[in-house]
């Protein structure tokens, strides 16, 4: 079984702060981590390997620093790591990202053989788009299963996998033919605490760098310039001010509060 996991390095959102003077995010000193959903995708792929043998490849697109994330993936049990790193990718939106990752995946397939399951995180916590996984599945022309919370059965011989996924107000169980693309929720599994030899192996292994010269990537489909969506401007939502402490004013506190929020309730059609 060959799994290919797409992972993204993101700033730890919990530690990102906002500079209200300059209207920008302060990323300095904020640790970069593997997108939390992606760690569960890696774990799922490694569990597949444990069960059926084979290998786990990981692929990321990002700056040189993203190598750290790939190494971390190796320490979690992945076998081969690839980093798509080239100036031409800078500023890609999800359309261009999925294109570059698709092209990178071709290279991984070329080196390690056909892939049975492609994995991604449900969404990245910096962009929160949840578009890259579906985009990749479409480009790869394989079935897509988003928001997976449980792998019920995999049958590589017969070429299918049974997955439980989250839907509105419940879940559904799908049988999907392989190869397919699965995007992971956090519930998909519990992360293991990697054994020390895996960490050491990860430090020793190398991350292979991919760019526009050693892949078939067409630079005319990448990067800021070739992304269909553009950012017009960014701004910081106004800071939360400490609000008002309500006191019962003869009336019951519930009435006081109600009057405060009545306009909003009206707007929501509740009144």
């Amino acid at each position: 079984m060959h799994s290919l996991v797409f992972i993204k390095q993101v700033p730890d959102a919990a530690q990102v702060r906002v500079d209200y003077h300059t209207g920008t995010l302060i990323r300095e000193g904020v640790p970069a981590i593997i997108n939390p959903y992606d760690t569960h995708a890696i774990e799922a792929a490694v569990q597949m390997k444990d069960k059926f043998g084979g290998i786990v490849s990981v692929l990321s697109m990002g700056p040189p620093m993203a190598e750290e994330a790939l190494r971390k993936a190796l320490s979690m049990g992945a076998d081969k790591a690839y980093l798509l790193c080239d100036k031409v990718f800078a500023g890609s939106d999800t359309w261009a990202t999925s294109y570059a990752l698709w092209a990178g995946a071709q290279k991984v397939i070329q080196e390690n053989g056909p892939v049975d399951i492609f994995w991604a995180g449900k969404q990245a916590i910096d962009g929160d788009t949840a578009q890259t996984g579906p985009g990749l599945a479409t480009r790869l022309d394989i079935p897509l299963v988003t928001c997976a919370i449980k792998i019920i059965e995999a049958n590589p011989e017969k070429g299918y996998i049974i997955v439980q996924r989250l839907i509105e107000g419940g879940s559904e169980t799908l049988q999907v033919s392989m190869p397919c693309m699965i995007t992971a929720e956090k519930e998909l599994n519990d992360l293991r605490f990697s054994p020390l030899p895996d960490l050491i192996k990860a430090v020793k292994s190398s991350v292979q760098l991919l760019n526009s010269t050693n892949t078939t990537i067409d630079p005319a489909q990448c990067g800021l310039k070739n992304s269909p969506t553009k950012v017009k401007r960014v701004f910081i939502p106004s800071k939360r001010e400490r609000g008002e402490i309500l006191e019962p004013s003869g009336k019951e506190i519930a009435d006081v509060l109600f009057e405060k929020i009545e306009p909003v309730l009206k707007q929501m059609g509740r009144v």
């Binding site: 605490f193 990697s194 054994p195 020390l196 030899p197 960490l199």
Partner: peptide
């Protein structure tokens, strides 16, 4: 001894 599985060096 470290806190990891197979963690002795």
């Amino acid at each position: 001894k470290t806190d990891r599985p197979n963690g002795d060096l």
